[in-house]
Design a protein around this nucleic acid. Sequence first.
DNA 1: TCGAAAAACTGATAATTATCAATTTATTTT
DNA 2: AAAATAAATTGATAATTATCAGTTTTTCGA
Lengths: 240, 240
Amino acid sequence: MSLAGIFPIDQWNFKSQSILKSIPEEDHDRLCANMTVETYNKGDVIFKEGAVPSGIFFIQKGIVKKYKVDRDGREQIMYVAGTGELIGYHAILSEERYPDSASAIEDCIIAFIPKEDFLEVLHSSVILSQRLLKNMSHEYAVLTNNISVFTQRTARERVAITLIVLREKYKNEEANEDAINISRSDLSNMAGIAKENLVRILKEFKNLGVLVSEGRKITITNIKMLAEISSYSNKTLKIR
Amino acid sequence: MSLAGIFPIDQWNFKSQSILKSIPEEDHDRLCANMTVETYNKGDVIFKEGAVPSGIFFIQKGIVKKYKVDRDGREQIMYVAGTGELIGYHAILSEERYPDSASAIEDCIIAFIPKEDFLEVLHSSVILSQRLLKNMSHEYAVLTNNISVFTQRTARERVAITLIVLREKYKNEEANEDAINISRSDLSNMAGIAKENLVRILKEFKNLGVLVSEGRKITITNIKMLAEISSYSNKTLKIR
DNA sequence: TCGAAAAACTGATAATTATCAATTTATTTT
DNA sequence: AAAATAAATTGATAATTATCAGTTTTTCGA
């Protein structure tokens, strides 16, 4: 079932897929001139917050989490990027260190484009600049959306949103398998709540018939109800 | 007293001042060709979330809050912009509607640059694109910082950070008056906590000798201790 | 300057969410 | 496949934060 009309999914996704797809072939070729492709296993770190950036990454296949770890070791996931998305460009463009870390949630194939190539093409390609500007200004909208949800919505609503967003990310992965496959810790770190709290809310959702789960695999069975719980639907649903 | 070494203030401020300051005079002149300057009184709305953008705004004098209001009427302040900062460009660049609202926290003088002029200069000025790219990628770091604080830090720590950030904003305003002058509601909406909770934490800080207040004016008297409370200092201070 | 309205403050309580400790279930490794 | 390890789940409890109701103080306009 589609989210059209029941949840504003565009307000939750970055649009970095469009960056490489819509630039001239010549620019694209120059970007890929020294590109290297690497395989990452589940759990592997792609880059670490605070490190000096050396290039940008293109996710050819797989799912990656971007997160920050605070001084108490608690992790907050900022964004989950899937196949076709670009990561690591913020630090290059801001001339700062990586603001967050990235690691593979599942096995990934990721291409690396060196900083020098990226900057060289950027300086000569008006269209690449424009794509990046459009993409990052959209990111502002996504991030401010996130902030308002984190500060103002209940744990239940946040879990609902998290599941809706992840469902889209996993939909495009394996053709025969569209279940969300992610640890409870990652789920709770994405929703910004304690793991135990997340487990209990998942159970609630299961009892409501919103999802089924076996092991760590979660399949959404009633996306409409989930959208209602998220409070982004027109219908206002109150549980309990 | 300076924040150097005790709090990473750069990670909390956007850098849009540098955009207009560092572009060629010719580009600057073209941007300002049809610029209009307007006065806003305290509380006046500059633009509203969801509205179609018609241009960008340059704060010549004053302080502006950027915020989102959820369907229950609760407000979350995303950012506070002061003299010299630019606002409203995200919506123009993303070709979407305003992702948040902006209104004057104190009386302001704000210049308006029409969308057409901004886009025309942007398309012909590589340096303006570069400045915007650098600025927005830095914003990503600021916003993700905010997210991790909102989800992982206590109300007390968030109030401390809020006060440190506001102190910097107000420092540059009136020469003879560097007190923070903002309503308790705005403060609580910035920290993402209930107003009553904020009032109690302010009282605590007052008792600790961190600040003095008369009416709505707050003067920080011990910025070092505030930085320690914020948990961004090296020293780890535990209250209670 | 007075009076009304708004904002700030206080105390009590409720609701939500996190933490702790233990058990059960899954997953990985040998 | 069994053992070892890690992850998920559960129940009980604690901590934090929000809400409610009322009072006091401040602000602002007539």
